[in-house]
Design a protein around this nucleic acid. Sequence first.
DNA 1: CTTATGACTTTCA
DNA 2: CTGAAAGCCATAA
Length: 106
Amino acid sequence: MNFFDLVSDYVKRVPLGRVSTYGQIAALAGSPRSARAVGWALHRLPTEKLRYVPWHRVVNREGRVSTTCLEHTGFDQVRLLKKEGIRVKYIDGNYFVDLRKYLWEP
DNA sequence: CTTATGACTTTCA
DNA sequence: CTGAAAGCCATAA
């Protein structure tokens, strides 16, 4: 199984109403220091996989939505997070999630 | 094989 | 506390 599919599989396991971090997914995938690769995988995620891969529930270590697409798609995905009951804070053009409460712990 | 890139993380000044 | 730099992993060219 590729790292790509592995990451996708773990992201799919994130329960609704919870969020995860790139480092966490990377650790689950077998490489705790491949957070950047995880980010790459999610960025390069095919449209068909977006249907069942809740990538919007994956944020960085600070709980910030690091998507470079914050100005367009990021807004829609954050909207989904709010729809799932996750309280998203909008600070200085960036979206933040309270990891202390919403972080997924497998 | 070498170089470059990225939705990251940690460390140091 | 803030900001900059280096480190690390996987993939593309």
